[in-house]
Design a protein around this nucleic acid. Sequence first.
DNA 1: CTCCCACCTGGCACCGGTTCCACAACGGCG
DNA 2: CGCCGTTGTGGAACCGGTGCCAGGTGGGAG
Lengths: 336, 336
Amino acid sequence: MSILADVARLAGVSKSTASRALSGRGYVSDETRMRVEEAASELGYVVSSAAASLVTGRTRNVAVVIPYINRWYFAEVLEGIEASLIRGGYDLTLYRLSTDLDLRRRVFDYFLVRKRVDAVISVAIDLSPHEVQMLQALGKPLVGIGGRIEGIPTLSIDDVETARVATEHLLSLGHTRILHIGGDQHEQMDFRVHSQRYTGFTRALRAAGVEAEGAFRSAEFSIEGGYQVGLSVLGDPRTRPTAIFAGCDEIGIGITIAARQLGISVPHELSIIGIDGHPIAEMLGLTTLAQRPGNQGARAVELLLSQLEHADATPPNEHEVLPTELAVRTSTAAQR
Amino acid sequence: MSILADVARLAGVSKSTASRALSGRGYVSDETRMRVEEAASELGYVVSSAAASLVTGRTRNVAVVIPYINRWYFAEVLEGIEASLIRGGYDLTLYRLSTDLDLRRRVFDYFLVRKRVDAVISVAIDLSPHEVQMLQALGKPLVGIGGRIEGIPTLSIDDVETARVATEHLLSLGHTRILHIGGDQHEQMDFRVHSQRYTGFTRALRAAGVEAEGAFRSAEFSIEGGYQVGLSVLGDPRTRPTAIFAGCDEIGIGITIAARQLGISVPHELSIIGIDGHPIAEMLGLTTLAQRPGNQGARAVELLLSQLEHADATPPNEHEVLPTELAVRTSTAAQR
DNA sequence: CTCCCACCTGGCACCGGTTCCACAACGGCG
DNA sequence: CGCCGTTGTGGAACCGGTGCCAGGTGGGAG
């Protein structure tokens, strides 16, 4: 394991010149630079990032805190973040925060706070003012994905509006017996995504003069969750809705599978719409309001790096609303 | 941002005593330790991991290189790794290696090699001897998941045997027109998982005296991939197989959906078996050979940490075979 | 011709911990 | 009573880079 001093010696220059040559900062003649580079590659030299970050205070490492990995939306966001960071020469340190509050505290108090990371991206986690303040006190830029957080730049889709548009699509097809199968209001994710989508749903119904009472069933935010609730809800033809607005595509997919299993024809007997843009939704012809989680991740990195690269620019502590697009496929049709 | 010297001053002790008190190494009187701890928490002190790892040479950070995030098996492995690492007080730095060879080189040459990580877990990536040697030369313990790698401890299921058992299950039910829908042999993942499962398949057929010629179709390793190939393969009732061995549960799920769509009754007209233990497989009643990817990740961490914690123990450069368990559900039945 | 500036290089202090070593106090044992 | 081992503490040398500053060149402007 060779160190900078070895490289300098082999190249016949001083440590500082070797450092300049390799990092590209400051004046070095082309000839010297080449000699140093040669020496470095001959010795298989690589900088010690610990030493570098000790003196510069920068680690070129970004933390991502995220509640799930094995769910489509989160995995997509993560992939988007990872790809962008690596392209920018940054490492990505992953913290999965479960519902374990104790772990959450540990991650914040112990892991994030050590000067290991330059910045933090939090996905679908509603940071408390105290957590935000703590990270900001450390001078760490912070970007949130999935909902608003006071005082830091965040980005997300407009959940209320997206749900409203989805519901309106069903209403415009003449449906009035519409059921919303969404996430549990109590065990919801941090940003109240569930209740926001529910709000959009009821808002659309009310605007159309349709009764919202009893038009909601909760399900786990997964294909299995949608499937189970789908089976139970679609079983009785007398109480069966003519259209379902699923809180996410995974639920919608589960419902679709349940409907097929029960011999309920989609869209003739039942219309289904979801939110997300999941590839399986496309495969099944599920109408949806598509978002691009990968792009959200990439955008978050972009915001972060711009803060990191020129610290002068005051951070745009704004909430950025990302678009969703209605993709009408074959799971929704006019009410017969 | 307070540093150790501040804490020492506030506690009225020297830097070295403060360091000992906080790290728990060496002699410190209980009373002094308490004073130091108090001072530290009063100042909100946290160690600079850069400074610490500069002198100790340990970073308490493990790299994970993985080809996918948004696939069930990989996400499960990743979750298992993450949970175990955080419990052991280690950070996890994530590198997603796509098929981009250039990126792969960069990750190895540039990212992994900087003294940022203490160890590396490689998931479903067949490291070249050169890559192994490079990491070992840096003294970094290395564990592989998903297949054998010469010279380092690895763990995986026995793909050949698992596929053989799956096929045998179909054979034992009296099926002879069995199709294997698996991954593309050419575009396969690194460990030749696809060809190994194919080998197990043909081996079982041969042992039963069944012709293997033409009994294979390739699909993308995903639900959509299985669905598409399923549609094309199941369309013509005259050439339709009576049983399908899917290369993974995701393919099996896709085939199941395709079969339902075509009105083919499972298991009466078609038996389907997969490999993995995907939750949707369970939901659909898909018979499978279940593995526990999360446990594989946890086990890998265990191997790694034992190497890290007591460097004396020579690494057990062995391949550990993890079990798969036949879970017979409702997608397989005797040939009529 | 002088002055200034852009270019190039080396010396050295520093980042913030860890750890080795020296030293001191104290108790137990022969 | 002297010696030794255990315990407790402080001083100082690191770890391996970065970057400031000083010093030295050479060329163009005044």
